[in-house]
Design a protein around this nucleic acid. Structure first.
Lengths: 370, 370
DNA sequence: CCAATAAATGACACCGGTTTCCTAATGGGG
DNA sequence: CCCCATTAGGAAACCGGTGTCATTTATTGG
């Protein structure tokens, strides 16, 4: 402040004066292009590095300088270029969502949960529906990650249970989190949903209502969730002294049509079950249709329980007792886990995370007649 | 080729020789980081500009050189950095999808259609669910576009009918395409779906079946689609000599519950309608529930028709006659329109594009009794 | 009052592509 | 045989940010 090293000091004094002026009067000069960090630096009479420090919340900036720069940023509506930041940081601030789940509501809920976490951390979400049966499946997924240089990927079941896909992601060095009913590999890369809890609650609910002749429609055996739901349901029934005879179990494919087929088999058999637990709501809807077709009254003659709490559960009449899987929380947890790993630059997380499914009792489950 | 201008020519010869070698033998040297354009250039003994030319399909590259470079790209698995390209091109190759539609299936279908078009053009899709009632709605949308510097945005109804949102997008200089039931402004920024066709088909269908006492559940008046469906349905009925008395019309809000309420009013009135057309499937499901509750048999005592062809349409029993809106095509068209505008760098397109909805007859519509 | 230290800031290279401008070699016509 | 147009390819600047390191200024202790 005292000495006058010609170039520097003059520049400094000039800056100080200009800053004062600029801070008070409005910057009126408008550009025909989006403002860049250079524009901000010029108007603030500082180097762009200092502006960069302000943007990135560096503590090594004078409070006054920070205020001035923030004011200018505000005035000219400066937004840092994500491409430039990405290039310098070697990051894209983009998360990917890979799904092949046919349940649209589930996907949308997951998306919302993921985005809730993304918003807080300044990430955006890129979606990628896919088809495991396609010959391009793995290559598409690879391109998806590479093309936008995704920072991380969230994979939804059943795609999340594909080991080859996981291998591709690992080879790419791309951080990922898988959603699944069970912890398939290192807990670090998983967010699990506990279907056992919900299935057990259903078993207890049916037992408590007094049902003894119970039919069960399992999910396709290649789905982890199908195993979980089945084991837990059967195990819990057994605890209550109810044995599920094999002819009371049918395996569906999680589709409406398969629900119809399985229900037809179960309901034309003697003794006819007084309750049917379908492993998802889609198949439960198929049971409704079959029961109505056969003139079996719901719930008077037949109790039905589903799983997922999808929109149809409340659209059906009578409304369906089911198990709610908190998909939005699931998405949020997955995104949080991923973002923490990305931000802290650690390769593997440690804690296992997950959500628990809970039964929702509605109108379709009542005690058996007589 | 003959002379030896010391520096250049030697370099050239060297290059030619090396190229041959490299093209034959596999490049074994592996990097601990993703390969860049510089790595490709070094291995090919060309400048990075030439590699750039190959990547961007410039015609000014010797066929042989191109082959060699492509070979090396293939071998080392080089993928251009989207950040760097974006920075240089001033483009992000990212499209945004803004939605506040509660119908998950519709959103997922739109997404798939959009992505089909994106894939062909090398774009990816970023999603942004929002809430028009939130005070941050407009600001969130603005940030969404700016934060990743989106090349274009597709807006789904009902958000697409918000003029303030459109203004924000225009101010940002962001290209956008709106999906709506009617062409709200310049055709350039719209992809419209023709709900009139579907609604007219329903009117004709009901008239042809012999229904005269017809109930109608309209959608919320703030939705454009609600207007379209109503006007077309009422108008077409009139053409067939059927006047829709005002007490046979109820206005719902596109929700299941509102469908129940409206159906209750319609079905407890004399003369009771022999058919009800609900403006969407959700409300039609509400009509099912009410009818079943009141002991009215479907379709024997009551014909029901919906709109949307959402998943519940086939889950209900009997399956619902409805109108299919080709959402996937809609998404594809919107994306194609946007991508053409982005790629050709024109501000406004010219042709109006759109899709037509068509009726799907199922089990819920039959001639009236007697 | 000066040296040592901490705080605040700037200069410059760099991230990985593209654009602009320029050079060298080739081929055809006068 | 020379000139010029055309083709193939390179050097350097640039896009808009960030990292490293040096430099200046303010603060503190002896």
């Amino acid at each position: 402040m005292t000495q006058d090293t010609p170039p520097k000091s003059r520049a400094r004094r000039g800056r100080a004066a200009s800053i004062q002026t600029l801070a008070v009067e409005t910057v009126t000069w408008t550009l025909d292009r989006p403002p860049t960090i250079n524009d901000v630096a010029r108007l603030a009479h500082v180097s762009k590095k200092t502006v960069s420090r302000v943007i990135n919340q560096s503590p090594f900036v004078n409070e006054e300088t920070r205020t001035i720069i923030n004011g200018i940023i505000e005035q000219i509506g400066y937004v840092p270029s994500p491409q430039a930041r990405g290039l310098a940081f070697q990051r894209s601030f983009l998360l990917g969502l890979v799904y092949d789940n046919p349940n649209a509501q589930f996907i949308v809920n997951i998306q919302e949960g993921v985005l809730a976490a993304c918003r807080l951390a300044g990430f955006e979400l890129v979606v990628h529906p896919c088809d495991q049966k396609s010959p391009h499946f793995l290559n598409d997924a690879k391109q998806f990650v590479q093309r936008q240089n995704l920072d991380g990927v969230i994979v939804v079941p059943p795609a999340s249970e594909n080991p080859q896909l996981v291998e591709v992601l690992r080879d790419l060095g791309c951080r990922y989190v898988r959603l699944s009913a069970v912890s398939l590999d290192e807990a670090a890369n998983m967010v699990v949903y506990n279907d056992r809890q919900g299935a057990a609650e259903v078993a207890e609910h049916l037992a408590a209502l007094g049902h003894r002749d119970i039919g069960f429609i399992a999910g396709p055996s290649r789905h982890r969730s199908a195993h979980e739901r089945r084991e837990s349901f059967v195990g819990t029934l057994k605890k209550h002294g109810i044995a599920l005879r094999s002819e009371m179990v049918e395996e569906g494919s999680y589709t409406f049509e398969s629900g119809e087929v399985c229900a037809t088999r179960l309901l034309t058999r003697e003794p006819r079950p007084t309750a049917i637990f379908a492993s998802n709501d889609e198949m439960a809807a198929g049971v409704y249709k079959t029961a109505q077709r056969l003139g079996i009254s719901i719930p008077r003659d037949l109790t039905i329980v589903g799983f997922d709490d999808s929109p149809i559960a409340t659209r059906l009449w009578p409304s369906l007792t089911t198990v709610r899987l908190p998909a939005k929380d699931l998405g949020r947890l997955a995104a949080e886990k991923l973002i923490i790993r990305i931000s802290s630059d650690e390769q593997e997380g440690h804690t296992a995370t997950g959500v628990v499914s809970r039964m929702v009792v509605r109108e379709s489950s009542v005690p058996p007649r007589g």
